[in-house]
């Protein structure tokens, strides 16, 4: 099958029931998308499907077919969220952060000027065991230009 990832059509000939997460990581060499829980509980595997945040551990390859898949590798280097993340020294272990960024990017696409409550609502499915939540929030607001 063909999967459209970061604007490119990629071939995948494996099990159509394989979760998209493992297709990306093991077959398309896109390891920025992380495995954390496998059951849509942590958000480490967040990607965009047609611009909306989705947990790639819980989407099958077959289901992702025909959709525009965006991973952290598809986020441009100068993206305001990446800039803000570095400015606030958000990451600790860093393992959750690509998922956080993908979730935050989907939020800003929908709500360019999110409130604290919007951020909490959008981001509370993404676990950070290192507890960087407040820096994430500050970085999102910074990137969005809200105080």
């Amino acid at each position: 099958m063909k999967l459209n990832v970061n604007g490119e059509d990629r071939d995948f000939d494996g099990d159509p029931n394989m979760p998209l997460l493992w297709v990306l990581r093991d077959h398309l060499s896109l390891s920025g998308t992380k495995f954390g829980c496998g059951i849509a509980q942590c958000g480490a595997c967040t990607v965009h499907l047609n611009g909306k945040a989705a947990r790639s551990c819980s989407v099958l390859a077959a289901e992702a077919q025909g959709m525009k898949i965006t991973t952290i590798e598809g986020v441009s280097a100068g993206h305001r969220l990446l800039v803000a993340w570095v400015k606030h020294d958000v990451p600790q272990c860093g393992y959750c952060q690509s998922g956080q960024i993908m979730q935050a990017a989907a939020l800003l696409a929908e709500k360019p000027k999110p409130t604290d409550a919007d951020i909490d609502a959008a981001m509370s499915g993404n676990i950070c065991r290192c507890g960087t939540y407040r820096r994430i929030k500050a970085a999102i607001k910074d990137a969005a230009g809200v105080a």
Binding site: S29, D89, V90, G94
Partner: peptide
């Protein structure tokens, strides 16, 4: 004195054990 790995840990390029190929 700031972290030296914030960039790679934000843009998905940091290499963890899980990512070794």
């Amino acid at each position: 004195v700031r972290r030296k790995d914030s960039q790679s840990k934000s843009n998905g390029t940091e290499l963890y054990t899980q990512d070794v190929r």
